[in-house]
Amino acid sequence: MPTLSPSVRKSASLIYHFAERESKARYKRSLLGWFWSFMNPLTTVLVYGFVFGVVYGAEAPPTSNGNAENFGLYLFTGLIVWSVFTGVVNGSMGWLIGVSDLRKKIYFPTETALLGGAAANAVQTLLEAVVLIAIMLVLANISWTLIFLFLALTFSMLFGLGVGFIVSVFNARYRDTQYLIGILLNVAFFGVPIVYTQKLLDDGGVDGFLRVVLDWNPPALFVEISRDAVYFLEVPQWNRLLAAAAWGIITFAVGWVYFRDQSMAISEEP
């Protein structure tokens, strides 16, 4: 590719390297390999599906043809988008720490470590998406609106990277940042309609400022778009799409600029 500038080519091969290493580290020495990568979302879907769907008797909202009306699937369509975000945010802190010793001895663009890790996560997510789509195909609950799922995943990834760029720099300075982020993400999980439905909020009379936050926070927007795309098979509202795109792109840009500015200091951390 002669048109690429040397620095872009260099970054690209470093991103590839870090992505490869992340994937290998995850599945090396495990006989079942990729199988384990499905266990985490699968158990979450099964456990939450059982607790909320069976024990609490939560009802999944009706789908277009009624075939896919299942609380587990309702969860899965939300969870897949949410875990892109949390995977990148949590991962970014470890990815940066993982290369910080190296960065003290040799110069390379540090953001490639985060982009590489994110790329490995993206591959994993695509495999989950294939499983989700396969299930929906079997249930004949599928439509061209499917493309919005990939849009939701992309926005979620961009937003996660933007946040990840910032928190990973904090974590390089204050190592307990990762615990704080872990706690915050646990709380934030319930700010996103993954285990509950909009109907539940309506019935509970949740309104005012809290409702605005619950409806318009970025992960909630991504999750709703994904739901529309593969569960309800509707075209997402354009203003929600726009808001989701803005959150993803602006957060990524801000995080990127911050990281580029701060990451030089990483080589001077003790």
């Binding site: 620095s7 091969s13 470093l14 590839y16 390297h17």
Partner: peptide, 12 residues
Amino acid sequence: VYLNGAMLGLSR
């Protein structure tokens, strides 16, 4: 060696 090469902008 490959990682170092990548950091210097050399292909695999």
